[in-house]
């Protein structure tokens, strides 16, 4: 009599494990000592009935259906705290990421996928590049007018040859534009020569988290090309 959650193994079929190893050669799934260091350090332990150790175990035992359907891959935030202390250095997060990529588009969390789709056109919140430029200039103008001490404040966009390139998380221009100002003031005080770009300016990038490496690569390449065109020597990440 087979118990409902019993795992019967006549012959191991390890399709998913093979896929992971093909995409990520250093996945080291087999090196797991099942010591549980990962589970102890993971805030997602217990969510969806899993933890990193169980996750790897299911892979090793070929329980592919269960892995392909579990939402634990979205409870895991790919924070890397498991790998940080894992005696075998197993990067569970990266395996989770690969499994997210295997989830059919229609079954993926909608907002997450949408953030990535929007990113591929302008930015993760979906405001247009024109709107971004308008908002920046509008907020700048307002600040220069209302705060006499900062009348000289600048927020350059597409300034070719600027020494520093600055990205901008889309959240501010979308919902709280005044939050951009403190950083401008700091940069102004320090006196560096910086610029935004009018396209591929977003500092966030959710394409990495959908699991589709090609989307992540595409958006990043676009941003890099933009910066290269502006001939900036440094790229400042704001977070």
């Amino acid at each position: 009599m087979t118990a409902p959650d019993e795992i019967a193994i006549k012959k191991l079929t390890l399709k998913l494990k093979a896929y992971v190893l093909e995409k990520f050669k250093e996945a080291n799934i087999d090196y797991c000592l099942t010591c549980g260091m990962c589970a102890s350090g993971c805030p997602a332990t217990g969510l969806e009935g899993l933890d990193p150790r169980k996750f790897l175990r299911l892979l090793a035992l070929g329980q592919d259906d269960e892995l392909l359907s579990t939402n634990w891959i979205y409870a895991c935030t790919i924070c890397g705290r498991c790998k940080h202390a894992c005696p075998m250095g197993i990067d569970v997060g990266r395996i989770v990421y690969l499994l997210r990529g295997l989830r059919p588009l229609e079954d993926r969390p909608k907002s997450l996928q949408k953030s990535c789709e929007l990113q591929k056109t302008s930015c993760s919140t979906g405001i247009s590049n024109e709107d971004f430029v308008w908002v920046v200039n509008d907020v700048l103008e307002e600040t220069c007018q209302n705060e006499p001490d900062w009348a000289e404040l600048k927020a350059p966009i597409d300034k070719k040859g600027a020494e520093y390139y600055l990205n901008q998380n889309a959240k501010e221009p979308t919902v709280e534009p005044e939050e951009m100002v403190p950083l401008w003031k700091i940069l102004h005080t320090v006196g560096i020569d910086w610029t935004y770009s009018s396209k591929w300016w977003d500092g966030a990038n959710y394409c990495m988290f959908t699991g589709d490496a090609k989307d992540w690569e595409y958006t990043l390449r676009k941003q890099v090309e933009t910066i290269e065109e502006l001939c900036c020597r440094y790229y400042i990440n704001t977070e």
Partner: peptide
């Protein structure tokens, strides 16, 4: 590890 029976 999984808390389940395994039948080999």
């Amino acid at each position: 590890v999984l808390g389940r029976q395994i039948r080999l």
